[in-house]
């Protein structure tokens, strides 16, 4: 289906949920809430863009939440507990996330392991590593590193007391680079092509293994970036549940935003709108009194399922119309 139509459809749904929530809860439209919503969308959006690259190749990355945890705990641990300098900490994080992505990609392409299995094991591994590294203790910045923390907490003031959170700027930068990479470079085209038909793409002279590895590296790197921003945002991280389920939020947002798990399909704009929809839904559940907070997962699950069903029905309708048109010829 035309990606523009998908984006339009998901935007419509987002608008609908925003309007309903705004009418049901007065606190929704406060500057504080909207800024918060934008910040959360930005943080989760970075993860979703990462996983979108993997999903476009027809793979899956379940390790994102655990990488968020590993990096989110590792950064304050290195800076506050070990007292290492910021450049050293950043370098280590960079090497680690690129390395993890490489390992995922190589296991999947060279050993032909299934992406689900590789990244499921990774999910368990990194969570355990993070808990071992920190002795399962909460790690945080305390009152130090306020300068660094502005990366996640500072708001660029606009008129009327409303400000743009810095993560939002970071998301825009990441999204623009990602969109250019996906749509305007040959490598982005290769990713879409191999997600569509790996064999045909390989037969056309493209090193599909290398491109697949690249997708997993992108996903791990953006998960690492997200992990840093998340921990800077909330100041401390508990290794036992920091980043729990984030891979599922990211995958759900990418799917809602028009990425097909079969691969070969997806847009960056769609993924961001999908992320926003997820966050507005969560916000709605918190703010609207009529909805008990603890059924959050049920609501999100139902909305995603509804979206996927609607998408499938529209696809079938289009196929039937096409068949009818051809029958008339």
């Amino acid at each position: 289906m035309n990606p523009m139509k998908k984006i339009l459809g998901i935007s419509g749904l987002l608008l609908f949920v925003v309007i309903v929530t705004a009418m049901a809860a007065d606190s929704f439209t406060t500057a504080y809430n909207i800024e918060n919503l934008i910040r959360r969308t930005a943080l989760f959006g970075i993860l979703s863009i990462g996983v979108a690259f993997v999903i476009i190749t027809g793979g899956i990355d379940l390790s994102i939440g655990s990488i968020v945890c590993l990096v989110g705990c590792g950064l304050p641990w290195m800076l506050a507990v070990k007292g290492w300098s910021l450049p050293v900490a950043l370098l280590i994080i960079g090497v680690v996330v690129v390395g993890l992505g490489l390992i995922h990609g190589l296991l999947i392409t060279k050993l032909r392991l299934q992406p689900f299995v590789v990244t499921l094991c990774a999910l368990l591994l990194y969570r355990g590593l993070a808990r071992g590294l920190t002795g399962d203790q909460t790690v945080g910045f305390g009152t130090n590193f306020t300068g660094l923390r502005t990366l996640a907490t500072y708001k660029i003031p606009l008129i009327g007391g409303f400000g743009v959170p810095v993560p939002c700027v970071i998301l825009v930068v990441v999204a623009v680079i990602a969109a250019i990479f996906l749509n305007r470079t040959i490598y982005g085209r290769y990713l879409l092509a191999l997600g569509n038909n790996e064999q045909a793409t390989r037969f056309s002279g493209i090193n599909t293994d290398r491109m697949t590895v690249l997708a997993y590296v992108i996903s791990a790197v953006l998960a690492g970036l997200g992990g840093m921003l998340f921990v800077l945002d909330v100041n401390s991280a508990q290794p036992v549940d920091f980043g729990n389920f984030y891979e599922l939020y990211a995958i759900a947002a990418a799917v809602l935003g028009g990425c097909s798990l079969r691969g070969g399909e997806g847009t960056i704009v769609g993924v961001i709108i999908g992320t926003a929809l997820m966050q507005v839904l969560r916000n709605m559940i918190t703010l609207v009194d009529a909805i008990p907070t603890h059924i959050e997962f049920a609501v999100i699950g139902a909305v995603i399922l509804g979206g996927v069903i609607a998408d499938e029905l529209v696809k079938r309708y289009a196929a039937r119309k096409r068949a009818e048109r051809q029958a008339h010829h």
């Binding site: 040959i186 085209r189 290769y190 879409l192 092509a193 569509n196 045909a200 793409t201 493209i206 070969g264």
Partner: peptide
């Protein structure tokens, strides 16, 4: 269908696939 085409991509993308690298 299995080895030659990107079925869910356009004619244009299919024709250019092998020469993208040369024309980049």
């Amino acid at each position: 269908k299995l080895q030659g085409l990107l079925l869910e991509m356009g004619v244009r993308e299919n024709i250019s696939l092998a020469s993208l690298n040369r024309d980049q």
